[in-house]
């Protein structure tokens, strides 16, 4: 009985995630637009200003960072669907159905993570084929991308639980995403930052994601392992907090 219940719960989550992603991919424009931003960032920053030759060591630094950043944008974007669902009333449809609130949260989290992974992979393929950056161990890269996407989704769920309407959620998510983008070690190494900033950087999951992706390339497995652990901790805690915020709203 218990396993059956768990099974139903999981299938419900998958249906919810599937339905979510189906909508996102239905509007192709939406997907293309959301990928244009990281692509644009990748191309602009791929020129080392003042240096005529493409700098492979800098590209090796930049591309993993961009991949991590894209995972962040992709997954947080997808979790914003919760706020839209709320404001359009479609969330009521799921609430009125015999689906547990845990299934809803897991489903929404899965959708966000999948979106993050897919967007990151697109950038990874474009980046590695255009700039000749090789990621060495693709399975580790995948692992990090998945973990990172889950931890970003957790953050997205918290935001969409706190926000009362889409505009507020957009504002809140940008408030988090942009500082994270510049402080998360995507474009500038954390070690080169002036004093209080590295502490802030160390509090952001993106920092660990970018660091881990670079560590995979330089085969520094100790760092990969450490960062992966931090990301798991991040994922678990944000998802717990995120579900709490959502749960509180749902069953009040």
């Amino acid at each position: 009985m218990k396993t059956f219940k768990l099974f139903t719960m999981l299938t419900h989550s998958i249906y919810i995630a599937e339905n979510d992603l189906r909508q996102s991919f239905k509007s192709v424009r939406h997907v293309v637009w959301s990928l244009l931003f990281p692509l644009f960032m990748m191309f602009t920053f791929s020129f080392r200003y003042g240096v005529s030759e493409p700098d492979i060591s800098f590209l090796n630094f930049l591309i993993p960072g961009i991949v991590g950043m894209t995972a962040m944008f992709g997954s947080i974007n997808e979790t914003m669907s919760i706020v839209w669902d709320k404001s359009l009333g479609v969330f009521d449809r799921i609430l009125a159905a015999p689906v547990s609130s845990t299934s809803i949260i897991i489903g929404k989290t899965m959708a966000g993570a999948v979106m993050g992974v897919i967007s990151a992979l697109v950038l990874l393929i474009v980046g590695s084929s255009l700039f000749g950056v090789s990621f060495v161990n693709i399975s580790f890269v995948l692992l990090i991308v998945v973990l990172a996407s889950f931890s970003f989704t957790g953050i997205g769920t918290i935001i969409s639980g706190l926000a009362s309407e889409p505009r507020e959620a957009m504002m809140l998510s940008n408030l988090l995403r942009f500082p994270m983008m510049f402080l998360g070690g995507v474009f500038f190494p954390v070690e080169a930052m002036p004093m209080p900033l590295p502490y802030i950087a160390r509090a952001l999951p993106l920092t660990y994601a970018t660091e881990a992706l670079r560590a995979v390339m330089s085969k520094n497995m100790a760092v990969v392992l450490f960062d992966a652990t931090v990301l798991v901790a991040y994922t678990v805690s944000t998802i717990i907090i995120g579900s709490k915020t959502l749960m509180r709203l749902m069953t009040r």
């Binding site: 139903t8 299938t11 419900h12 249906y15 919810i16 339905n19 189906r22 909508q23 239905k26 509007s27 359009l88 009333g89 479609v90 009521d92 449809r93 799921i94 159905a97 015999p98 689906v99």
Partner: peptide, 20 residues
């Protein structure tokens, strides 16, 4: 409160799935 980005059939499919 149907999903505007989906067709009627897909909407109903989703509801049917949620109700098992």
């Amino acid at each position: 409160n149907l999903f505007g980005e989906l067709s009627a059939r897909v909407n109903l499919e989703f509801m049917g799935k949620l109700y098992g």
